[in-house]
Amino acid sequence: MIIDKIQFIIDTHWPLKSFEYWSSYLLINILINICCFCVILKQQRYERRKALSAICFNSYLLIVVYSLVITRERLFGYQYDLCPFTSVLKLFNMDPLWSLEFILSQRLEILQYIILNILLLLPCGMFMGLFWGNEKRNYRIVILSACSISLFLELAQLLTMRGTFQIEDVFFNTGGYVLGFIICQKFIKRFRNNYL
């Protein structure tokens, strides 16, 4: 009942199908990127790195939202899966009566799904690591920002009925974001030790 009221509000006040809405969203994103670019031109080298990483982060997030929410066809009804790690359980819990080829194809498909979900927000984590550089960092903030971005993407899919809300996607996306952040931090540390 509450979800139906939310859907009514979305359908009447948030026109997802209108080109004007998405073009205004794109225009706002471009304006934010132009402002960040102006900061790049006026600031020191340290601030330029931050502004450039903010532009990359913002642009990549726009691409992710576009591909996960805007380009998909609208489903019939709300689809959600609130069981965490159902795909991991499916990976190890196959019926022994199935043929070996079918089991291998299913496992390959599930592994591909998991890896793609991890890789989805990995660049965002790398851009955030580039933004912070070698500053003292708090991993709770990184995990919280990763969870919030992933939860936003999943809720956008649920409320617009353009995808399935899955709790496990939040975990996999968060893991990819944190992994990207750690990779970038290690790369920056190694680069500074070797070349500076």
Rank of each mutant, 00 (worst) to 15 (best):
L16G: 03
R72V: 01
K17M: 00
L16Q: 01
I183T: 08
V69Y: 01
I188K: 03
L119W: 00
R107A: 02
L153T: 04
Y21G: 15
I55H: 04
Y78C: 02
T164H: 07
F172E: 01
S150Q: 04
E101P: 00
I149Q: 05
I188H: 00
N29D: 08
K90S: 03
L97T: 08
A54I: 04
H13K: 13
N117M: 04
E73A: 12
F191D: 05
V170K: 02
Q7A: 10
L144H: 11
L27E: 13
I28G: 11
M161N: 04
L151V: 02
Y177L: 04
I28A: 10
I188Y: 02
I141M: 06
H13R: 13
F172I: 06
K42M: 06
F152E: 11
I3G: 04
Y78I: 07
F102A: 10
K42Q: 07
D95M: 03
G125E: 00
H13S: 11
N93A: 01
L52D: 08
I34R: 12
L121F: 03
H13C: 10
G125K: 00
Q44N: 15
Y139V: 11
I103P: 00
F37K: 09
N138F: 11
P15Q: 07
K42W: 05
L120V: 05
L119N: 00
I6Y: 05
L122C: 12
A51F: 02
K90A: 04
I182F: 09
N193G: 13
I115C: 07
I10K: 01
A51K: 03
G129Q: 05
Q43Y: 15
P15C: 08
L151E: 02
N58K: 05
L122S: 06
L122Q: 05
L100T: 09
I30R: 05
L196M: 15
V170C: 02
L116R: 06
F152Y: 15
G163F: 00
P84H: 14
N194M: 14
